[in-house]
């Protein structure tokens, strides 16, 4: 479903040239629950950004759903993100002026769906993540865990091929983090959506069904685990 072949990425950080990815090969199948782990600067976020079509590799090829995305125009990448990719961020990144419902509905509104369908799917998804009755709350009136649930709902409501989660538990206490992980695992099992995490949280690694370890821009270990 997702294939990255010999992906290289170098960026400039101040006056230093950083080789973030040095020829990554990675294939991700349907309904995987994959954690990409590694120390800071190992390239895990860069890899996630490239898979998520918000960054481009210097060389190599990335295919999503059989479609080559490297070398595509910016507006094509926007359309791919809009339809096929959901993001969950470390800081939740909810839109503060929107309610929980509106944050979720926004994903569907961008797809140009009808109001009734948006409402039905958003409410259902909020219920799925356990936020029934909190639809009208703005992010400032939600706890960190609840905000991350809204972010998960926002990512999943459009039924993407893949959800990319960058350090999703980093700003949550361990109990809340585990709740969110369990939720994502359950949704992965039930909806069949692929989840890819970048993390250095041990708990996330434990929950992962597949764990890739990155070091200095290279995959040094790729472990598949049984459920």
């Amino acid at each position: 479903m997702i294939s990255a072949q010999v992906v290289h990425k170098t960026y400039i950080d101040g006056e230093t040239q950083v080789h973030a990815l040095r020829g990554i090969d990675l294939n991700i199948g349907e309904a995987e629950f994959l954690a990409i782990a590694g120390p800071s600067g190992s390239g895990k976020s860069t890899l996630l950004n490239i898979i998520g079509c918000i960054d481009t590799p210097d060389s190599g090829e990335v295919q999503i759903d059989g479609e080559l995305v490297t070398g595509r125009k910016t507006r094509d990448l926007v359309e791919i993100r809009r339809a096929k990719i959901g993001f969950v961020f470390q800081n939740f990144n909810l839109i503060p002026v929107l309610t929980a419902y509106e944050n979720v509905a926004m994903s569907l509104a961008l797809l140009g769906l009808r109001e009734a369908e948006i409402r039905e799917r958003s409410m259902t998804m909020l219920a799925e993540v356990g936020l029934q009755g909190m639809e009208d709350r703005r992010p400032s009136r939600l706890s960190g865990g609840q905000q991350q649930r809204v972010a998960v709902a926002r990512a999943l409501v459009k039924e993407p091929l893949i959800v990319l989660a960058d350090e999703p538990t980093a700003n949550l206490d361990s109990e809340t983090g585990e709740d969110v992980l369990k939720l994502m695992l359950e949704l992965n099992s039930r909806l069949g959506t692929t989840f890819v995490f970048s993390t250095h949280d041990q708990m996330v690694m434990e929950y992962a069904r597949r764990l890739c370890l990155l070091h200095d821009g290279l995959i040094v270990s790729d472990e598949h685990r049984s459920a």
């Binding site: 918000i54 926007v78 359309e79 993100r81 990144n93 961008l110």
Partner: peptide, 16 residues
């Protein structure tokens, strides 16, 4: 800026 990034990652077009 971060919010713009979030909207962009969600697939909001530049013209939007």
């Amino acid at each position: 800026t971060q919010e713009i990034g979030t909207l962009g990652s969600m697939g909001m077009r530049g013209r939007e």
